[in-house]
Amino acid sequence: MDLITPDIGIVFWTTVIFLVLLLLLRKFAWKPIMAAIDARNKSIEDALKAAEKTKEEMVQLQADNEVILQQAKKERDSLLMEARDTKEQMIAQAQQEARVEAERITQKALQSIELEKQKAIVELKNTVGELSIDIAEKILRQELTDTKISEKIISQSINDLKLN
């Protein structure tokens, strides 16, 4: 049957055509196409890798930022704390100093009061002494007979006496 008998012409031409086509396409089509696809795939892969790397760097950067922020916060807190402590310390110190000063002033005042008092007492004593002497002198000088009158004079003199 013709159908399954290979024809020499077809065998010849198929061999020639296919071989030439194979060699031509290999040189002018398949190799450039494959090279281009490989190059493109590589560039895409590289780009993806770079993106991934950048992403990682970003994450790293963010983590770093977080750490720095935390540190800054901590520093701020400690500074605030320190400031507060200092403030309290200063207030306490000031109060203390004020108290000591007040104490000192009070003490001084008391001392001077005491001193004045002593002075006054001494003066009073002196005055009373002088007055007594004056009174005694008056009594003695007038030689009052009546006791009543003398008493009156005495009490009057005492009333006149002003204890400044």
């Binding site: 020499i8 077809i10 031409w13 031509l24 396409l25 196409i33």
Partner: peptide
């Protein structure tokens, strides 16, 4: 020995030409 450009051979040439043109264009 018959190596005529028959209908089949002509079609093969046609397809080869088409393929060459097509894939070179793709390249």
């Amino acid at each position: 020995i018959d190596i005529s450009i028959t209908k089949n051979v002509f079609t093969m040439l046609l397809v080869s030409g088409l393929m060459f043109w097509l894939f070179v264009a793709v390249a």
